[in-house]
Computed example of a mutant assay.
Amino acid sequence: MNLFDLTGKIAVVTGASSGLGADAARAYAAQGADVALLARRKEKLDAVVKEIEATGRKALAVPCDVSKEDSVRAAVEQVLGAFGKIDILLNDAGIAQGGSVETLTEDQWDRSMDVNVKGIYLMCKYVVPGMRERKYGRIVNIASVNAILADKADALVRHVYNTSKAAVLGLTKGMAASYARDGITVNALGPGLFESEMTENTLFKHEAFMNMYNSLCPASRPGARGELNGPVLFFSSDACSYTTGQFIVVDGGFSIT
């Protein structure tokens, strides 16, 4: 039996218009799942949907701002109307706001917490009831290595990012304990530095930072596209039936202590 086979499963991916979210959506489809892709940029979602549909799987683009309850409610209703159920929820939508507690504005703080933490809460609020009813669900929350490891370079301080991603771990553990009896697993992944739309115009442009990262990382490089897909598929599949409330860091060994 292929424990990673997702045939017949319906997966929902937030932040699916680019980067790690889009990669995960493609990986789900490659394992046989039909996929609903949620993000604010509809035109980018449509491009990923076309790629997935070309493989023979069904895909649906759903505009959604995960920080707004009305938007989340409408998006989940649209997915259920199209597919009838949700088996897998990958909460990937997130932003990486720079700044310290001294320099961050209140709006920057609130926006980061709204997207990175409130967004997961809202998606789960509307997806979990159906999973509980059917006694099956796989929820995967994308946190970050920065949930447990601070950026130490002054130019790259991200206090609200650290805070929001640490909060994701607390929410993951709480939900995992509450819903295990309902056949729902809830786990989190902590990517290190990966190639993505979010990083290519920020961290990847800091030559000194990249040299430092590569010298300190045992793998001597950032993560490549697709290298998060294996852990995503593990937490999303029946291979994860007895694993819940866990956090796996995927960072090439950067966080080894």
Rank of each mutant, 00 (worst) to 15 (best):
F4M: 06
S18G: 12
S18L: 09
G21T: 09
G21D: 00
A22Q: 06
R26Q: 07
Q31G: 07
A36N: 03
E43T: 14
E43A: 13
I52G: 02
E53Q: 13
L60V: 05
V66M: 08
K68C: 13
D70F: 04
V72F: 08
R73Q: 15
R73V: 15
R73F: 07
V76H: 04
Q78Y: 05
G81N: 10
F83L: 15
G84L: 15
I86C: 11
L90Y: 02
L90N: 12
L90F: 08
N91Q: 06
A93W: 14
A93Y: 10
I95A: 09
A96N: 12
Q97H: 12
E106D: 15
D107I: 14
D107S: 15
D110F: 08
D110W: 05
K125A: 04
K125N: 10
Y126S: 02
V127M: 04
Y136D: 08
V140M: 10
I142G: 00
V145D: 04
N146V: 01
I148T: 11
L149S: 08
D154Q: 13
A155C: 08
A155Y: 13
L156H: 15
L156I: 11
R158D: 06
H159D: 14
H159E: 14
V160G: 03
V160M: 09
V160N: 06
Y161G: 05
S164L: 02
S164H: 01
L171Q: 03
K173E: 14
G174Q: 13
A180Q: 11
R181H: 11
R181V: 09
L189F: 03
E195I: 09
E197Y: 02
T199M: 05
F204R: 08
K205R: 11
A208E: 14
N214H: 01
S215W: 02
P222G: 05
A224K: 14
S236N: 11
D251P: 03
S255K: 00
